[in-house]
Nucleic acid binder design. Structure first.
Lengths: 147, 147
DNA sequence: TATTGTTATACTCTATAACTATA
DNA sequence: TATAGTTATAGAGTATAACAATA
């Protein structure tokens, strides 16, 4: 337990566990699973032209994305439609219901995060989040920088 | 991409991915797997009186620990012996070779972490690591606070 | 009877490779 | 032929339950 960095991956792993555990009941309250939320969030800025593109956005294999899309479409949260320009592609977009769901869920998740960070001195929290975003390379959606 | 916290779990997950990817080749260079390193590290402060206790230390099920211990013992990095006081227990401890291995590996991992954090302003790195440790609840081994 | 270490079984998640339809 | 979406198959990882030795 050195005063310097102890084991970055170890500490990150534990904190991620804490964060995920905190998110889980919130997601459940909105009847969403982890990846549902990721997918709906990725669609928030607008339709995506192909499922493969969406898979890249959420960093998930396109095959593993399909059951999720099936479920979300059946729940009426998103819509898949063939692209007339290239009938192989499926353009995916939120329904009004889906947009409403992800907006409400995000608000609750952010509230939980604020509670977690509230235990810290404010300037520490600010630095932490800023550094975290920088290290995580959280760029503004490189795959669709047009927005 | 709000200036406030974006999605804590999301960012943490990505940064953990970066950290693990950076650790992997280092571990491989020392012929260790991720959990090998966790187990050897947990033993660094001294013998552990039972495998179940060791499992709790590394937060892993005792059944999943066994193949790891088998491998590490076969590699001569640790030793299992029956506790004479209670012959059901196996006391686990590092061999000299195991201690040497984990020490060397840790040095390389820490060097990698320093490289990662070197991209930041020094005071940002300090705050980040301090907050991370605090949020991760990285207490000085509650299960064996005697040391 | 309860507990430690171990083994065996089932389940989930993931990765890879076919298959269909479009181009 | 090449690509998007889909389905199917195999592998890794995980959880749970049974088992032998000891208390």
């Amino acid at each position: 337990m050195s005063p310097q960095q102890y084991d970055l991956a170890h500490a990150l792993s534990r904190l991620l566990g804490v964060a995920l555990a905190a998110e889980e009941p919130v997601l459940a309250a909105h009847d969403l699973q982890m990846w549902d939320y990721a997918v709906l969030s990725a669609l928030e800025q607008g339709p995506v032209g192909a499922q493969a593109e969406l898979a890249a956005l959420v960093r998930r294999d396109k095959t593993r994305l399909i059951p999720i899309l099936d479920r979300l479409e059946a729940a009426g949260l998103l819509r898949r439609s063939v692209d007339p320009a290239d009938r192989r592609n499926r353009v995916v977009e939120l329904t009004a219901s889906g947009r409403q769901r992800v907006t409400a869920c995000r608000a609750d998740i952010r509230a939980g995060e604020r509670r977690l960070l509230a235990a810290l001195p404010p300037e520490d929290a600010t630095v932490f989040v800023r550094v975290l975003d920088r290290l995580a390379g959280d760029l503004p959606d490189p795959a669709r920088a047009s927005g």
